[in-house]
Write a protein that binds this DNA or RNA. Structure first.
Length: 801
DNA sequence: CACGCTCTGCCTGCG
DNA sequence: GCAGAGCGTG
């Protein structure tokens, strides 16, 4: 009868169910009631904890911590048998443990919030594997998708119509540009981008235009921004549109001001789980607080050391002060890393320990120390790139890994071009991510703009984009006149155009305007009658857009492909949703922004920014451009907070690697059209030297490459690029030559037709043709194994067979 | 009204 | 180094 002896059996049974988790992970899963903060280091299995905890809530509720009815002796004996049985019958175990369930929750009472669609998709996939159909009822989505669902239901309370449009960052920038023009603000004095950032920051900090104006000093900047902010919100409202920030803000104001949506959410969501909590901003914090206010079962998972989005409004304070917002919060640290080798972790720990603003975690692992981290200084960015090519080729050739296990991660997108062109010439299979995202491509936005107008003719902004695309003789003067009329009569642009013949200013183009309006009317009429994909082809053909692209040359072929891709995504959408509507598709398009941007099945080296690599992992990580002024960015030099954010980014970069990290710098780098000479990043210096091999780090600085280097650490840094350029020799002799797998060898050897050569990747082959090109040779080589390829001599390091 | 040329300015970027 | 914006001309 005494629970003392029975409890262990139950707990032992649960421990058996979660035997693949470590003790801390289990602790987080079992902690069901009340607020819970999980500080999960890189590679500590946080997604696993999150998804298994959800399954646990649904199956067992608070079974572990609640006390249960006493067991009979027979039951206890039976359970002991189950405990001993091997192999473990998981399904049976789950069924048995369900007997201990205490207030298990329904799937639809669980809300799991992530930042990216990718993360949401991963959670959903894992839940489905675990819970089958029940998983479909769980609300798992991004902040934005969840808010949109709430808004569609309740936004009429705020005076919007429930079929509101969503403006992406590009749309809102355009709108801001046009407002700046209307207000006669010189773009040089105040760039649209700056204003956009400021407005976005204000919205994310939950400041209205009035508050912004009241709080701000009366300087030109704040005054203008608050003015633009006011007009911007008005225009959005008139267009029945929300920008990305509104999606969150409007949801918060709905929940704050109206009891119906608030009660609905608070009653419904017994359990709220938030992933990547370190990236939340004040609005998101408030949202979570509001939704979880009633049941207070809120679990947040994050890593303060991986907070790298302060620049877009995230406040690391949300995670640092979670225990102040919820004084009864439990806190679990997940510090065991299952990803990286000991040396990599030691290096990452050493770097991040230089930050002051942190909770303080130390990752550890059972894995071996593994290889040391490598550092190499190359001559210029092309040497750097071809060095990486050689290294990766060697790794793959030696069977250490495949191409897909290697990632080249850089700080700024501008580094990508140089890397990409060298990779392309070398023939190394690679893919560059984080370039232009799919839905950001002009042709995609064009077609979507048509559809937005068809869905919501009040959407002036998208109307403006397509009214003269393809060219149909409705030019800037006509549009300006029509917009002026719309403004004075406070009508939408479309309604003015619709009655163009009534306005003498529009008479000249009135026939063409009429034709355009008819076109849109036909589309609108077709909207609810034909299928989504039919509507698509109707719009593309009858608007003349397809014809315009077909008339174009080489580049437009790719655009047509992209549009076809869009059509197939519409078809896929139709297949997935029985009641597929245009509105639904547009919403998905606005919120998804990228179609599966990282296809892990392709066997190719990945090139991307460190930011976009967050959450991913690779065997071998290459970090080119580990230089002062690039990383940390020179913009961060004068602020400790920004430097710490850069350091966290370095921590993220290092912890992406499972087996190997290679850091490189270039003595000379051409970036943004300027040549720069940067010393090695302070972050590389923060890695204990005994963990590094390759080129010496300190020595290069002492040689005077960058004399003020030591000043960085005193914090009095102001090394102007100009000074550096004057004081430094353009290129030092004796800089490491690019080598194949470490063996010294000059690349300059020239081969004639008929020569037998060996390529690091393609193996042996015969030169068919050698054509001099610039200061290089273009070889056409018939390889014995992989066929004939064209290769640039300077990039592919050919050797004599 | 449309097209082509020059000029400038640039981090990172989810939804 | 490249893209988008602005300006001038046919």
């Amino acid at each position: 009868m005494n629970t003392q002896t029975e409890k262990p059996i139950k707990e032992r049974l649960f421990d058996l169910l979660y035997e693949s988790l470590n003790e801390k992970q289990r602790e987080a899963v079992y902690q069901v009631k009340g607020p819970l903060l999980v500080l999960a280091g890189a590679g500590s299995g946080k997604t696993t904890v999150l998804t298994r905890r959800i399954a646990h809530l649904i199956r067992f509720g608070d079974a572990v911590h609640a006390s249960e009815a006493p067991l009979s002796d027979a039951e206890r004996v039976a359970l002991e048998e189950v405990l001993k049985a091997r192999p473990v019958d998981r399904d049976l175990l789950i069924e048995i443990l369900k007997g201990f369930a205490v207030e298990p929750c329904e799937p639809w009472q669980v809300l799991a919030i992530t930042f990216t669609n990718k993360a949401a998709g991963e959670i959903r996939a894992r839940l489905e594997a675990e819970l089958k159909e029940a998983a479909n009822e769980i609300w798992a989505g991004t902040f934005h998708s969840i808010c949109v669902r709430i808004l569609r239901r309740y936004i009429t309370l705020l005076g919007y119509q429930s079929d509101f449009s969503i403006f992406d960052a590009d749309d809102s920038k355009k709108l801001i540009t046009s407002i700046l023009k209307d207000l006669n603000v010189d773009e040089k004095a105040l760039s649209p981008r700056e204003v956009q950032n400021e407005i976005s920051r204000a919205k994310n900090a939950m400041r209205t235009p009035e508050e912004f104006a009241a709080r701000g000093s009366v300087d030109f900047f704040s005054k203008t921004v608050s003015e633009v902010y006011t007009v911007y919100n008005q225009r959005l409202f008139e267009s029945n549109a929300l920008d990305f920030d509104d999606i969150l803000c409007k949801t918060v104001s709905l929940l704050e001001n109206f009891s119906e949506p608030r009660d609905y959410c608070q009653n419904r969501f017994r359990y709220v789980l938030v992933d990547e909590y370190q990236d939340t901003n004040p609005v998101q914090f408030r949202l979570v607080q509001l939704i979880a206010a009633k049941h207070r079962n809120v679990m947040v998972v994050g890593d303060d050391d991986q907070s790298i989005y302060k620049f877009r409004g995230a406040t690391i304070e949300n995670i640092l002060t979670f225990d102040q917002s919820y004084p009864d919060a439990k806190c679990v640290y997940l510090e065991q890393n299952y990803r990286s080798t000991g040396n990599i972790l030691a290096a990452a720990n050493a770097v991040i320990s230089h930050n002051r603003e942190r909770k303080g975690k130390k990752l550890w692992c059972d894995a071996e120390n593994g290889d040391k981290l490598q550092y190499f200084r190359l001559g210029d960015q092309e040497e750097e790139a071809s060095f990486l090519v050689d290294r990766i080729a060697a790794l793959v050739r030696d069977g250490k890994c495949e191409y897909r296990d290697c990632a080249v991660l850089y700080r700024v997108g501008a580094q990508a071009n140089a890397l990409e062109s060298v990779f392309a010439k070398s023939g190394l299979p690679h893919r560059q991510l984080s370039g232009l995202r799919f839905y950001d491509r002009a042709e995609i936005k064009d077609i979507l703009a048509y559809l937005c107008v068809v869905q919501n003719p009040a959407d002036d902004l998208h109307l403006l984009r397509i009214v003269n695309l393809p060219r149909r003789g409705i030019g800037d003067t006509t549009i300006a006149a029509a917009r002026a009329i719309a403004q004075t009569e406070s009508k939408t642009l479309f309604s003015v155009l619709n009655s163009a013949d009534q306005y003498p200013e529009l008479s000249r183009a009135s026939a063409r305007i009429k034709e355009f309006c008819n076109l849109i009317a036909i589309f609108i009429e077709a909207r609810d009658r034909v299928s989504l994909s039919e509507l698509f082809s109707k719009v593309m053909d009858e608007s003349g857009y397809t014809a315009m692209l077909e008339a174009g040359g080489k580049e437009t072929a790719e655009k047509l492909d992209n549009i076809r891709e869009l059509v197939s995504s519409a078809i896929a959408y139709e297949e997935q949703h029985e009641d597929a509507t245009l509105a639904g598709f547009l919403e998905e398009a606005a919120l998804i922004s990228d179609i599966d941007n990282y296809d892990e099945s392709a066997n190719a080296v990945v090139l991307m920014t460190i930011h976009s690599a967050k959450g991913l992992e690779f065997d071998y990580v290459f970090l080119p451009g580990f230089e002062e002024s690039i990383f940390p960015s020179s913009r961060s030099w004068d602020s400790d907070a920004q430097l710490e954010e850069e350091r966290r980014l370095a921590y993220v970069a290092l912890t992406r690697a499972r087996k190997g990290v290679t850091i490189t710098t270039a003595a000379t780098r051409l970036i943004y059209g300027h040549t720069t000479y940067n010393p090695v990043s302070r972050f590389a210096e923060e890695i204990p030297p005994e963990l590094l091999e390759g080129d010496p780090i300190k020595k290069l600085q002492r040689e005077g490459l960058f004399q003020k280097a030591d000043a960085h650490f005193a914090g009095e840094i102001r090394p102007a690029r100009a000074i550096a350029e004057k004081t430094l020799a353009p290129r030092r002799p004796g800089i490491r030559q690019t080598t194949v797998a470490g063996q010294a060898q000059k690349a300059k050897e020239v081969f004639g037709a008929g020569a037998r050569v060996v390529h690091p990747m393609f193996g042996a082959g015969t030169v068919l043709r050698a054509t001099p090109m610039a200061q290089d040779m273009l070889y056409e080589i018939a390889f014995d194994e992989v066929g004939t390829k064209k290769i640039m001599g300077n990039y592919a390091k050919l050797t004599k067979e």
